[in-house]
């Protein structure tokens, strides 16, 4: 099967949430969210963000991820600009109870992988259907 060709995507701006201290636009990172029996996994594309630039917050089942990009060096004149550069921010309402103490986050090559283990009592219990 032929490999799919990637299409360029225009970054979507994150909805305004009050004024920020840092100037510039804020974008929504593209995410994949999937669920395993034990955890929720969120993978977000945040190119230009290093490990130290990532902030994760979970409060009342509202998960907030944000990334600060390292700005391009000053002293360069822009010739062609096909994409905008800016920080990332996104919020998610989680439907599961998460064990906050066991959250793992890895930031590599501009991709954030967040593993959110489900709290013990949130694991799916198989319901026995008895006949009779």
């Amino acid at each position: 099967m032929a490999e799919q060709e990637l299409q360029p995507k225009i970054k979507e701006e994150a909805p305004a949430k009050g004024e920020r201290v840092r100037p510039g636009q804020v974008f929504l990172p593209a995410v994949d969210i999937y669920e395993t029996p034990d955890s929720l996994v969120l993978v977000a594309d945040m190119p230009g963000v290093a490990g130290e630039g990532v902030a994760i917050d979970l409060k009342d089942n509202l998960l907030t991820i944000s990334g600060e990009v390292t700005p391009p060096p000053a002293g360069e004149t822009l010739v062609v600009r096909e994409y905008a550069v800016g920080d990332f921010y996104r919020e998610f309402q989680l439907g599961e109870l998460i064990d906050k103490n066991r959250i793992e986050a890895v930031m590599k090559e501009g991709v954030l992988t967040l593993v959110l283990p489900k709290a013990e009592k949130a694991k799916p219990r198989k319901i026995e259907v008895k006949s009779g």
Binding site: P8, I10, D45, E76, L78, V79, V80, E82, E109
Partner: peptide
Amino acid sequence: TRPGGVYPLVNISEDHDHVYVRAELPGV
């Protein structure tokens, strides 16, 4: 952006001695 753009989108900048081409390629 003009339709018909090709992935990856690039930004090109320059200074006195160099030309810089940047592209966002997360996970590559």
